[in-house]
Nucleic acid binder design. Structure first.
Lengths: 217, 217
DNA sequence: ATTTTGAGTATTGTATACAGGATATCACAC
DNA sequence: GTGTGATATCCTGTATACAATACTCAAAAT
């Protein structure tokens, strides 16, 4: 099966990777022409990718002033985090019970997460993967897609937090709590704990950023 | 204050209006060049608007084959409806108590809804507006935005349902139930009833479409 | 010294051009 | 009549071009 993919999608992935690696820092201006040159394509697919990222909330755009990486703003994090907490809890409630193979994959991911030190990007990839595996059996594809696109937002905040606060790894404790609740209380109980862990995480990040923008302009 | 708006946004609104009026029927192919001619702009902003609609799920796109209006598929309706039920319930829980002026605006909308007969588009506009007013006090702007973009999906199904099944108006009974629960039981109770009404509505539409695609290809 | 202003440059938003692939048409074979 | 293949047209995806707006920075004015 040969796969062809629109250039705009490939460009989207590349830009997203740069954002996640921090090459494009919050607040930085994003010029389509330089990205196009760097990626060796024309401005058109680049702009299509940028418009998509803007709609997803990672970039912001002002008419005539192009794109910039949206500055971190703890209010935004709380807004998106609240939404994600509800949606991921919903996905969990809609999922069939966690079977043994998937449980083992989750535990395997947690082990790798515990061994990773100092590599922010890898940590976040593992964290994303953990969530993906936990929810992948949910039959509501549309919901999973929505969750996937929203998760980009907290990811940026976590990255900034880990780098700035010198945290070298992510705790796997929330994961364990969720799995425990799932095993003992079923989907509803797991979903409740899931949402609760989201709130806890939000509070932790907010206590770090304090009030106002996490990264001053 | 003179307001300038990107062409792509204006084009987006125009195309959406055509979709809502049924000028662009489900399954129909959408050619950017003819839309561009019709609107008197170039293909570029039209394509930007179409890509956005595709990401929002109203259109679908295959590489090299352009855009088409996504055929109605009752599975999609259930997926999006479940998400919207959860999100609108969440928005309600996050909102301050409904004050009297807003309650009156809602009742006013319901009266207009009851008087409207046979004009599907007006009915749906009023229904959208009712939801918007109910939730507008929710402080989570991001959530409201997401709800707004998702609501386009069920709107298409409602339109098809009303036209095909010869329903001339929408019932305001669900609205009344929600307001009653809100008044008597507070936000949580209202949210629960909200979600329940969503499920009821989904079931009603599904019993009409039966299994499988609502509109055969 | 600070603010204003204006020419020049850079960059955006939109329009147009181009190339390759997809669809349609029609002739011909079976 | 149905199926197959060549060819011609159309359309999409991408690249490039253009015009208008926003930024830069230095010189003038307050």
């Amino acid at each position: 099966m040969i796969s062809r993919v629109p250039l705009r999608d490939e460009v989207y992935r590349q830009i997203l990777a740069q954002l996640q690696r921090g090459v494009l820092a919050p607040g930085a201006r994003v010029r389509d022409v330089s990205l196009a040159a760097q990626l060796g394509v024309s401005r058109t697919p680049v702009r299509e990718a940028l418009l998509r990222l803007a709609r997803e909330g990672v970039l912001e755009t002002t008419l005539g002033r192009g794109f910039r990486v949206r500055p971190l703003d703890s209010a935004e994090l709380r807004e998106v985090g609240t939404i994600l907490g509800a949606l991921e809890a919903l996905a969990l409630r809609l999922s069939p019970p966690l079977d043994q193979p998937r449980r083992e994959r989750l535990q395997q991911l947690d082990r790798r997460l515990e061994q990773t030190r100092g590599d922010v990007s890898t940590c976040l990839d593992l964290e994303d993967e953990w969530h993906r595996v936990l929810l992948e059996a949910c039959p509501n594809r549309r919901l999973l897609e929505l969750i996937g696109s929203l998760r980009q937002i907290p990811r940026r905040y976590l990255a900034a937090y880990m780098q700035a606060a010198g945290r070298l790894s992510l705790s796997t404790l929330p994961h364990a709590k969720i799995l425990k609740a799932l095993a003992e209380g079923g989907a509803d109980s797991g979903a409740a704990v899931f949402e609760q862990q989201w709130q806890r995480g939000l509070t932790e990040l907010e206590s770090w950023t304090g009030r106002g923008p996490a990264v001053p302009a």
